[in-house]
Design a protein around this nucleic acid. Structure first.
Length: 199
DNA sequence: AAGTATACCAACCGCGAGCGC
DNA sequence: GGCGCTCGCGGTTGGTATACT
C-alpha cells in the first residue's frame, strides 16, 4: 500500500501557498542559477522558501524560466494550437514544445478560456464537426497564401513519401526538435493536412 | 456607486512514470 | 520485486480584474 510522505504532496500545513512575491522569485532564481533546475525539494530548502519543491518547479517553469513569452498569442500561434490539439489532444506539454516561449499551462489556459468556447460556438453554428475545420481553414488560407512552395532547407534529404512510418517519424521529429521559427511552422502547416488524411 | 457576473490566469492537486537503493 | 523519492503532466480551483446591470 503506497503511502507517500506528506511533504511530497505539498500538503504540509505550514507551507506557503498562493501567489509568489518578488522576493520569493528572486531567492528561487538565485538558487536555480547555482544548482540548476533540478532536485526541486533541495532547491526549495536551499532557497529558504517555505514552499514545496513542486511549487518551486511550477513557478520556474511557468514564470521565471528564461525566454518565456507572455500574453498576446498571435493568430498563427492560435492556429498552430488548434492543429496540434487536433493531432495530439490534450497533450499540452507537447503542444507547448512547438510554441517557442509558451508554457503548457499558458496553452492549456488559453485553450480553456478562448479556443474551447470558440469551437463550441462554431459547432453550434455549423452543426457538427465541420465547425473546427472551418475555423482552421479560414485562418490557414490566409497563411498558406504567403507560403512559398519550396520545402524548408534541412528537410530536403528526407524521404517525403507519405507512408505511415514517415508520418509517425515526422510527427515525432517535430515534437522533439528545438523550437524553430516560422519556417518550421509553415512547413508543418503545409504537411499536416496530409497527416490528417492518413491518420 | 454598488453589486453581480464573467473572463482570465496563477497556482494547486492527484496521479503515474522513471529511477536508484 | 518492492519501496521511496523526484519529476512531469493534465485537470481543477481560487483570486483578481473587468464588464455589465
Amino acid at each position: 500500500m503506497p503511502m507517500a510522505p506528506i511533504i511530497s504532496k505539498c500538503t504540509k500545513k505550514e507551507v506557503n501557498r498562493g501567489t509568489w512575491t518578488a522576493e520569493e522569485d528572486e531567492k528561487l532564481a538565485k538558487v536555480i542559477e547555482i544548482h540548476g533546475p533540478k532536485r526541486w525539494k533541495m532547491i526549495a530548502a536551499k532557497a529558504g522558501l517555505n514552499r514545496c519543491g513542486k511549487s518551486c518547479r511550477l513557478r520556474w517553469m511557468n514564470y521565471l524560466r528564461p525566454n518565456i513569452k507572455r500574453g498576446n498569442i498571435s493568430d498563427q500561434e492560435e492556429d498552430l494550437i488548434l492543429r496540434l490539439h487536433k493531432l495530439l489532444g490534450n497533450r499540452w506539454s507537447l503542444i507547448a514544445g512547438r510554441l517557442p516561449g509558451r508554457t503548457d499551462n499558458e496553452i492549456k489556459n488559453y485553450w480553456n478560456s478562448h479556443l474551447s468556447k470558440k469551437i463550441k460556438q462554431n459547432e453550434k453554428k455549423n452543426e457538427g464537426s465541420a465547425a473546427l475545420e472551418s475555423i482552421q481553414n479560414s485562418k490557414l488560407n490566409k497563411q498558406i497564401d504567403g507560403i512559398a512552395e519550396k520545402p524548408e532547407e534541412g528537410c530536403s534529404n528526407r524521404d517525403t513519401e507519405s507512408t505511415p512510418n514517415f508520418i509517425g517519424d515526422a510527427l515525432f521529429s517535430f515534437c522533439n526538435e528545438e523550437p524553430l521559427d516560422l519556417g518550421w511552422m509553415n512547413q508543418f502547416l503545409q504537411m499536416d493536412d496530409s497527416l490528417f488524411s492518413i491518420l
